[in-house]
């Protein structure tokens, strides 16, 4: 028992060290501009101010909306593409699906910066830079291969007998997909959707390359623009960063087991 308390103490200390940058971000976001460049810096927000957050409300609100739209759009597109594909790979298992699985695995390994360059060339020619759905399309490439692979493993877990029974009752392939397999794979859909949301919300590379100086910017570019200013106002930067971290935190609290499942899915096979 005493040993277990000792471990809790060390665990708390390790977690504190690990999360110190997160604490520091919150601390700086509450520091007034006049005390920002003080050396040594205040370890606690001794004179907390909300001026940074006021600027977020004032200047970053439209970016916040863009981020939300892009993230939700990416989730919808990702699931719409991945769910039927995963159903086919897990339950219909047509011939020649091996190479497709291989392509999906390899697709996850292509660096985003190269995709961005390719998309930029493509979008400029099609005249669709700086469009919401162009960015959604690009962002979905981060999530789709992962979503297909994880949904395939979830859908494989739906017993074949259940599928057979539905078929005997006269259900067609689509009906089985919609009324049997899809509802049984809810956890998989949540996990895939959650990661699609987080990745689209966090995307910087595609947003930076595909917006070509337009007005349509997600929150990540809002932060980037602040950093690029000559008089870097760090309470505004970190206040935006805190706001941008909210979805990740909420998702972690609400759906921790899905997050852990998603991280391990690609790496460990039971």
């Amino acid at each position: 028992m005493t040993r277990s308390w000792w471990r809790t103490g060390v665990g708390l200390l390790l977690t504190a060290v690990m999360l110190f940058p997160v604490y520091w971000m919150v601390n700086v976001s509450l520091t007034p501009a006049s005390r920002m460049r003080k050396s040594p810096p205040d370890l606690f927000p001794v004179t907390p101010t909300f001026e940074g957050y006021a600027r977020v409300l004032d200047e970053q609100l439209p970016y916040f909306g863009t981020s939300l739209l892009v993230a939700v759009g990416t989730v919808a597109l990702t699931l719409a593409l991945a769910a039927p594909a995963a159903y086919s790979l897990a339950k219909l298992r047509p011939r020649g699906r091996g190479p497709l699985m291989f392509v999906l695995l390899v697709a996850q390994m292509i660096p985003g910066i190269i995709m961005a360059l390719g998309f930029y060339g493509m979008f400029v020619r099609l005249g669709i830079t700086n469009t919401l759905w162009g960015l959604i399309f690009a962002d979905s490439t981060i999530a789709v291969p992962f979503a297909v692979l994880i949904l395939t493993s979830f859908m494989s877990a739906v017993p074949d007998e259940v599928v057979q029974a539905a078929r005997i009752d006269g259900a067609g392939a689509f009906r089985v997909f919609w009324s049997v397999v899809l509802p049984s794979s809810r956890n998989g859909l949540v996990t895939a959707g959650l990661f699609a949301f987080l990745w689209a919300w966090s995307d910087f590379v595609f947003a930076a390359t595909l917006d070509s100086g337009g007005a349509l910017k997600p929150l990540t570019l809002g932060i980037y623009r602040y950093i690029g200013n000559n008089n870097q106002e760090w309470n505004a930067i970190t206040a935006t960063a805190v706001v941008a971290s909210v979805p990740a935190t909420v998702l972690l609290v609400l759906a921790q087991r899905f997050v852990a499942a998603g991280i391990t899915a690609g790496a460990v096979k039971d």
Binding site: W5, L19, P21, V28, I223, S245, L251, L252
Partner: peptide, 27 residues
């Protein structure tokens, strides 16, 4: 041990934050 599951969950935070958030905080 006591709190181990909670602390392990908190360890995930750095991985979930948008990279631009982590990078600017470190900067």
């Amino acid at each position: 041990f006591r709190l181990s599951a909670t602390l392990r969950a908190l360890f995930l935070v750095p991985w979930l934050l948008p990279l631009i958030v982590s990078a600017s905080t470190w900067a």
